[in-house]
Design a protein around this nucleic acid. Structure first.
Lengths: 219, 219
DNA sequence: TCCTTTCACTGCACTGAGTGCCATCGACCT
DNA sequence: AGGTCGATGGCACTCAGTGCAGTGAAAGGA
């Protein structure tokens, strides 16, 4: 019945738009009582995101069973990949939903609250790992936000491509950038080259970001 | 009349809670017609955040008049400080609102959509500045998210202190961390020292964060 | 087989947010 | 005075979401 409601809802949403579709329309098409709709979905918006609750639970479980010696930043990146996996499970559905949420402000707001809950899950885990270090809580919040932003950036560009691009590669690349900003590199290239040492020279007072640009290209 | 509505609304919200207060209650206390409420505030939630619209406009204007040669990361940090300024203008009101939004899920969701608009403003500015560079759009999104997260972390800890802590110092510290992660330092020391050039040498394959730690301390 | 319990589903009535429409009233202009 | 315009108020309506009670079918126990 859940699935029937989701199917009926999306048919109508795509036909005549989200706001132009009432809950009564949905239940009429699905052939169920109005009251049952609200048994399965606490609000009209929830029918658009039917599987995020499960995915959030999965993410929390994934973080909870992290080994003690795992790199926390890498761990939250892997957790973020779970969300991508959920989107990739059903590309056509995800792309439809993307176009829907892009147009309807109410759905965008709802999506934000969903994303926020993912971000909080990551931040809570990081707080536990970094809590002792100086500025641990600050670091945890900032890293979680950066990881989520990187993930969403890649996810959205994949959705804009109608699911044709390689989602995994895009997310890997985006998360690698986020990781690099916070003190880890995904795979330290250990070359055999004789030129094994990099030297950077800069005038004192040079804006640090200019120096860093050089460093990054050198590495 | 706007102010009268806000005052009446907050009196009732604090007395009996947000959800237990209807719009009819508010307009009855303020002595105005129900229709006028929705003339000034498009929704019941908007009355809780009466000045964010203006602040968002200010932020966009601030970013639009940025000098071409400004460091973009520092610029968005300064833009974020505008939001702190708005909160600090009226500490008592901000603290009350904080406790309200912490309890009411609907208000938290609304706040998220407000924060999201700030973040988009910062990201749009950064996209304009970094758009040409490789991964410019990704960088813009991630930096904006990190700056907002750092700002909010400091803002929230100030709100939790009931406005007693030094908000400016906390935000400066948090933003300095965010800046440091993305390649700028808050105040580049322009020394007179004869040792005006810094040389950093590192073996290829060294984790980037180790190199960065050396750079930061050297500068 | 019959009775009972349980549970998913339905219908109904109600609250409250938000909107469209029109009447009103006062300020300001000519 | 007469007219115009903008702000306001009142009214009726739609629709999301909730509480309550009723129904029926499946499960279980004597």
């Amino acid at each position: 019945m859940r699935d029937a409601l989701v199917a009926a809802a999306f048919r109508l949403f795509l036909e005549r738009g989200y706001e132009q579709t009432t809950v009564d329309d949905i239940v009429a098409l699905a052939g169920v009582g109005r009251r049952s709709f609200f048994r399965y979905f606490p609000s009209k918006e929830d029918v658009v995101f039917p599987d995020h609750e499960r995915c959030l639970t999965d993410m929390k479980a994934f973080l909870a069973r992290s080994p003690e010696d795992a790199d926390p930043v890498r761990r939250v990146c892997d957790a973020a990949r779970l969300v991508l996996g959920m989107y990739a499970e059903n590309p056509a559905f995800s792309v439809q939903r993307y176009h829907l949420t892009k147009k309807v402000p109410g759905l965008r707001a709802y999506e934000l609250s969903v994303v926020w809950r993912y971000e909080r899950a990551l931040a809570e885990y990081l707080r536990g790992r970094l809590g002792g270090r100086p500025d641990g809580i600050l670091r945890a919040d900032v890293i979680a936000a950066a990881v989520v932003a990187a993930h969403n950036n890649a996810l959205r560009s994949w959705l804009r491509s109608d699911g044709r691009d390689d989602a995994g590669a895009a997310v890997d690349h985006a998360l690698a950038y986020a990781q690099s900003a916070f003190g880890d590199v995904p795979a330290a290239p250990r070359g055999e080259s004789p030129e094994d040492v990099v030297v950077v020279a800069a005038r004192r007072g040079t804006p640090l970001w200019q120096v860093l640009r050089e460093i990054e290209s050198a590495f």
